[in-house]
Design a protein around this nucleic acid. Structure first.
Lengths: 239, 239
DNA sequence: ATCAACCTTGTACGACGTACAACGTATATC
DNA sequence: GATATACGTTGTACGTCGTACAAGGTTGAT
């Protein structure tokens, strides 16, 4: 009964199992379900992407979706692959590895900013669909000038992608931040009272970083700083 | 009615509001609730840490917990601060910045391995309790030999902590990994058929990385690789 | 015409966080 | 000592979730 996830991922491939021809035709396709799910999660977050709301959006009952998708968890994998498949993959041309790595990092930042729920999906790497593999291939190609062995190359890519993910998470507005800002006039003075003159280093740096946080330029600055460190760190491999 | 979160975080501080003396004494303390929550989340994951199960574990009704904690979300913040407070903070002595940064990274790896749910908590930085601030202060101290301005120092620390978090996430067993391994005999051949000879780079590197993944030494190797890159990246600041 | 395969649907179950009101218990005040 | 007040505890209930299950409708194969 449940179609294997691997076949759902590759549903557009010519060799994918077509399924019998009996019975009424499906009113919605698996692809339409995935697209609607991505749209809903983009607009309102992953927790708003519920089976019932998805059914409403598609004009179909909630349970009907289980014909096209085995479970919500599987749907998350399909969504992930779909998001990866939509990414632009411009050729690298004659760019050096620094520019290439920068492109990869920025593309992943843009990816997670366009689909913030990707940061909440458990494992983006086990979505072995066409989009994810094409992305993987394209990103590995960026690292070829570094001439690394396969395992190291994979580790280097993970290093860059983990940085990009963390940067994207730091940039997205956090739910508690609003609460904190709201209560800050009251909480700030209490915190100062609790702290007294202890942890002067944390107080100094925290105050400076906190001010920068207000301007929201803080995350961008941290991104630039981190990306420079990533590139310098990788540069040590080719020296 | 709801005690401010900031006061709950600093509940052990002498200046913390004590609350009236009327009425029966509480059968459990806020600290006990937090400890039990941490234990439950450590043992069975964050999604197993439900209000009802927590009440059972403490021999108290579910709703009774709302006397000590304003909401489950607040409890997550208290748990985060508690985990931070429990961390060891050995003095750095005469260690150079490389050894210090290594210590910070490894301490955070151990932290998240001891409390995997920390990786799922939204914002670990806005838990402005005694544990979190002490941790922040101690980690900033590791970076003092680099002689960075406050904002850069904060960015550097975030860079290290984000790396450590990603490394810990890579090491923890992922839920889907078991399913994937289970179906791999069937899925592997289908995937090979779908791929054909396309994406040779991804296939080569993926196969090598996949084999390493089976041995579980993969994540450790990626950790060593990444930590070396982090240190080399930071070294470029002091040249 | 019959059958089998397939899609769709409504209902239902057990979980979740938590609002609400009732009840019991301890101290403060007189 | 009597009373008022504040506080802890509890059971019930609401709306949400994912999804198991069974019934019914629709289509092509035989």
């Amino acid at each position: 009964m449940p179609r294997p996830l691997i076949d759902l991922l590759w549903r557009d491939h010519p060799d994918a199992p077509a399924g019998g021809s009996r019975g009424p035709r499906a009113r919605v396709s698996t692809g339409a379900v995935v697209d609607a799910a991505v749209g809903l999660a983009d607009a309102e977050g992953l927790e708003a992407m519920t089976i019932r709301r998805l059914g409403d959006a598609l004009g179909v009952s909630a349970m009907s979706l289980y014909t096209h998708v085995n479970s919500r968890d599987d749907l998350l994998v399909l969504m992930t692959d779909e998001a990866h498949a939509r990414m632009d993959r411009p050729p690298y041309g004659r760019l050096g590895w620094r520019s290439r790595v920068r492109l990869v990092a920025e593309a992943n930042l843009a990816l997670i900013q366009a689909h913030p729920w990707l940061a909440d999906v458990a494992d983006e790497r086990t979505a072995l669909g066409p989009g994810t593999i094409a992305k993987y291939d394209h990103e590995l190609e960026a690292l070829t000038p570094l001439r690394l062995d396969p395992v190291t190359c994979d580790a280097a890519l993970r290093f860059v992608l983990d940085f990009a993910r963390a940067g994207a998470v730091a940039m997205r507005p956090r739910p508690h931040a609003a609460d904190l800002a709201e209560h800050w006039p009251e909480w700030g003075v209490r915190l100062a009272a609790y702290l007294g003159d202890r942890h002067p280093l944390a107080q100094t740096v925290g105050a400076a970083a906190g001010e920068a946080m207000g301007g929201a330029s803080d995350a961008t600055l941290a991104w630039d700083f981190g990306l420079a460190r990533v590139l310098d760190g990788l540069a040590a491999l080719v020296r």
